[in-house]
């Protein structure tokens, strides 16, 4: 008993990347996230599942303070990244977002060349001293985004001209280029066909070696395929959070069981 507790605290010190404590989110009068506590581990893929409108995307957007750009949104509680509260007034949300990258539901490449899309982050953060370094960063990011082979001969072509799956991998490469520590993905495959989805899922699995990945998904099969930990949200509450295998085989909460067997949601 004592031993396990000790083991858990050891885990929290080494491997917990993000920990949320009593997080509440309001959109105007609407209480969208109710008292969420969760610890997200480093070098792990964590999936957020739940029916539409359950608050999983909202919570995801709290982790890099993207909700700041919505006027009516209000966040309470603490979210710690490496033990530091990201809602501390001293924290600059702009710098935070460089550390916590995000990939969106719909591929959103800028109407620029493929190269400029990836170089966008490194340029605004001054990560490269010269053109050669920037080239190197872009190439590395595109390789990590598993799209280098497809685009290496047409880096000056517009990013919007790629196919949907390529666009999404380009957006992942773009997010990776700023060397984030955490990668947030908001339903990254919902606009993609099965083949592109498989490519992106494979990529997510590779990204786990370097980053802590948090993915919101509507597909329970996808959650089961790519994630090690799964959190089930329902009506703004975090209902259950555990190893993915356990959630899908022996859920503790009846609501989780109903959802994964298709009775609610």
């Amino acid at each position: 008993m004592y031993d396990t507790q000790n083991k858990e605290s050891a885990l929290s010190q080494d491997d917990i990347k993000i920990s949320a404590r009593n997080v509440q989110v309001y959109y105007g009068d609407n209480h969208a996230i109710k008292d969420v506590n969760v610890d997200i581990e480093d070098k792990t893929v964590t999936a957020f599942i739940g029916p539409s409108g359950c608050g999983k995307s909202t919570f995801l957007r709290c982790i890099n303070r993207m909700n700041d750009t919505i006027d009516v949104a209000r966040v309470e509680g603490d979210i710690l990244l490496d033990g530091e509260n990201i809602y501390d007034p001293k924290v600059d949300p702009v710098q935070l977002r460089a550390k916590v990258g995000m990939v969106f539901q719909k591929p959103n490449p800028f109407p620029k060349s493929i190269y400029d899309n990836v170089a966008y982050g490194p340029r605004i953060h001054g990560l490269a001293r010269n053109k050669a370094e920037l080239d190197e960063i872009v190439e590395r990011a595109l390789k990590r985004g598993a799209i280098w082979e497809e685009v290496k001969d047409r880096l000056t072509a517009p990013g919007t001209g790629l196919s949907g799956g390529q666009q999404q991998r380009l957006c992942i490469a773009r997010a990776v280029a700023t060397e984030p520590e955490v990668l947030l993905m908001d339903e990254p495959c919902s606009a993609l066909d099965p083949i592109a989805t498989a490519q992106v899922e494979e990529l997510i699995d590779e990204l786990r070696q370097n980053y802590s990945v948090v993915i919101v998904t509507h597909s329970m099969q996808q959650a089961a395929r790519v994630s090690q930990k799964t959190a089930f949200f329902h009506l703004g509450n975090l209902v259950e959070y555990d190893d993915t295998d356990k959630i899908f085989t022996q859920p503790e909460d009846p609501r989780t069981e109903s959802y994964i067997t298709g009775r609610i949601g």
Partner: peptide
């Protein structure tokens, strides 16, 4: 599209950088 702004903010760009560059 708002997606362009989100994409830029998500990469850690400030407001004026987003406006100028995207």
């Amino acid at each position: 599209p708002q997606a362009m702004r989100d994409g830029s903010y998500g990469l850690g760009a400030t407001k004026s950088e987003t406006i100028r560059k995207v």
